[in-house]
């Protein structure tokens, strides 16, 4: 497959992010997460709230300090101590788009100052005229116009604000953008605008995305590969078409069957896998496989042993004992 030959842009290995919450309680928001992102692709990361997908994104871009593991960007370690110059050049390569279009823009700043922030910090414009030219250009790139530059964020709608957020990220010409639920706060018709814009920008500028969301249908649409997270672990990772057509992990299967489809006939005839119960607390996750408490196929081994991260098919990784051939042959022998 083409994936193998492609150049790795970002490598995440055994990434851990733990938060101390009170005495002796540790919230393992991200626990041993590993994945690669190839140049020019979009990797989707889905999961329910509290599964650690946003924390993963924020840890990669150094908003949180990782508890363990490492992140390599173009062969260079992202974490650990760095000189100011290294950090700055890193900040120009990797950018982020945030979830809440109302909280992600400073209400006291005009749009031109918000967009030009990266230009100012990195000194990308020689003079004021050049700075404004860049701002106008960026505004037009995201489908707004010059007249908007001197206005304040509260005058814009959610979709427009989100595009301003994209323009701010683009101002420093990044290669890699982490989009942290960029569309979940937007209306359906506006979501499509933002997603189309992101895909257009990817084509034009060769961007690489990590697209974090809980909306599986949108993730499938925009992503080349998709990773599914549950309670701080990645449970399955595959090409998006393959994942949606043949999900292997029981959690992925349940998640996919739970999405309501805008088609009444399909809805009437569909058999859902309804998961019992709720997400366990990430402070004291279940032993062994974390999904076992809600899994319809749970076995004895699931409680005692953490499932291995294995390639069940080419390019299709899953962490589930059901697909562990060694284990299954062992069982048969017994």
């Amino acid at each position: 497959m083409a994936v193998v030959e492609r150049e790795k842009l970002l490598e995440v290995k055994n990434l851990k992010k733990h938060f101390n919450v009170g005495k002796n309680a540790v919230l393992k928001a991200v626990d041993n997460v590993s994945f690669d992102i190839y140049k020019g692709e979009t990797l989707g990361l889905v999961g329910e709230s509290g599964c650690g997908k946003s924390t993963t994104g924020r840890t990669i871009i150094r908003l949180y300090e990782a508890t363990g593991g490492n992140v390599t960007f173009e062969g260079k370690d992202v974490h650990g101590k760095k000189s100011r110059k290294d950090l700055k050049s890193f900040n120009r390569r990797m950018q982020m788009i945030f979830q809440d279009p109302y909280a992600s823009l400073n209400p006291r700043m005009t749009i031109k100052d918000i967009i030009a922030e990266g230009i100012d910090i990195h000194g990308l414009a020689k003079n004021d005229k050049e700075r404004m030219e860049r701002v106008y250009e960026l505004l037009e790139t995201v489908g707004l116009n010059r007249a908007h530059a001197s206005r304040y964020p509260h005058e814009f709608s959610g979709g427009q604000r989100q595009r301003i957020g994209i323009a701010r990220a683009l101002a420093v010409d990044p290669d890699f953008i982490i989009a942290d639920e960029p569309i979940s706060a937007l209306d359906v018709s506006i979501q499509a605008q933002v997603v189309n814009l992101m895909m257009k920008l990817q084509k034009e500028r060769g961007l690489t995305y990590l697209f974090i969301a809980h909306d599986l249908s949108m993730v499938k649409h925009i992503s080349d590969r998709v990773g599914v997270m549950y309670l701080g672990n990645i449970v399955e990772l595959a090409e998006s078409d393959e994942l949606y057509e043949e999900p292997l992990h029981p959690y992925t299967q349940a998640l996919l069957s739970a999405i309501p489809v805008p088609d009444p006939e399909v809805e009437r005839s569909r058999e859902r896998i309804i998961l019992e119960g709720d997400l366990p607390s990430p402070i004291s996750p279940p032993s062994g496989c974390r999904f076992r408490t809600r899994c319809p196929h749970a076995m004895d081994v699931c409680a005692s042993k953490e499932p291995k991260w294995l390639e069940a098919r080419e390019g299709h990784w899953v962490a589930c004992h059901l697909y562990d051939n060694e284990l299954n042959t062992e069982n048969k022998q017994q």
């Binding site: 709608s157 979709g159 427009q160 209306d187 359906v188 018709s189 506006i190 979501q191 499509a192 605008q193 997603v195 189309n196 895909m199 599986l216 249908s217 949108m218 499938k220 649409h221 949606y244 996919l256 999405i259 489809v261 805008p262």
Partner: peptide, 24 residues
């Protein structure tokens, strides 16, 4: 039409979404 077509369909091939331009 716009609402129905701006939603990606799980079982369709990748195409550009039909977005409704502008704001309400």
């Amino acid at each position: 039409w716009g609402l129905l077509s701006s939603m990606p369909k799980l079982n369709s091939a990748d195409k550009e979404l039909m977005a409704i331009p502008g704001t309400p």
